[in-house]
Amino acid sequence: MYQTTYHRASSVDEAVSLFGKSSEAKFLAGGQTLLPVMKQRLAAPSDVIDLGKIKELQGVELSGDVLTIKAATTYYDIMTNADVKKAIPAIAYLTSVLGDPAVRYRGTIGGSIANNDPAADFPAALLALGATVKTNKRSISADDFFKGLFTTALEDGEIITAVSFPVPAKAGYEKMRHPASRFALTGVFVAQTKSGEVRVAATGASQSGVMRVPAIEAALKANWSPSAIDNVTISASGLLADIHGTAEYRANLVKVMAQRAVAAAR
């Protein structure tokens, strides 16, 4: 690792101020991506500003039909939170299959979506549930937030403070784990809103990052059941291909994982 200066911010304002004073600063959330990248010498920030201990970024709140998860809440804390389990059990399940125990104790929802890895689990949940990303400056809908591989709507120095999820009527998530990394080789999150809208998002599949799957949404809107997807065809065009999965395989997984997510949805 190259030399870097570590700062532990005690508030969002302090973190913003520290960021402004540094030449090439990076925010550190759970460190599950940034630290390995720094150890590989692929990133060399002058300053690392740790958001993990900021109290205002911790915790979960359930208020009526909105579940709010603060940005620096770890996967483990989300997985075990009673409100999460009650309001959107699919999110609790998603965190239970995210990485391994060490990752779940360190990684955070804010870190995951800010990084927007094309195979990360949480972006699919945000997109399918129609979540809103809250930052220190504004609110951004999930549809507007994810901009492709490792790219988001965040501006330089902008900090995610929380994610608000409208509590759905039903939601489910299923993923095929990448055999080496345990990211999503392909994962699909399905949701039926309380107003009857159907939203489906797939991660790990597209060359452009997390994506909605309109064909499956239409089929499920007509008939919310796994068999409704039987005749949907997913094109392999534009999908990722690597040693663990061809584009055709991933296209199949989008469909199969969607069917299983519907079957598991509650």
């Binding site: 095929m176 055999p179 080789l185 663990h244 999965g245 061809t246 055709e248 395989y249 199949n252």
Partner: peptide
């Protein structure tokens, strides 16, 4: 025999 290979 990865899942992809078996499926194909």
């Amino acid at each position: 025999a990865t899942p992809d290979r078996v499926w194909r």
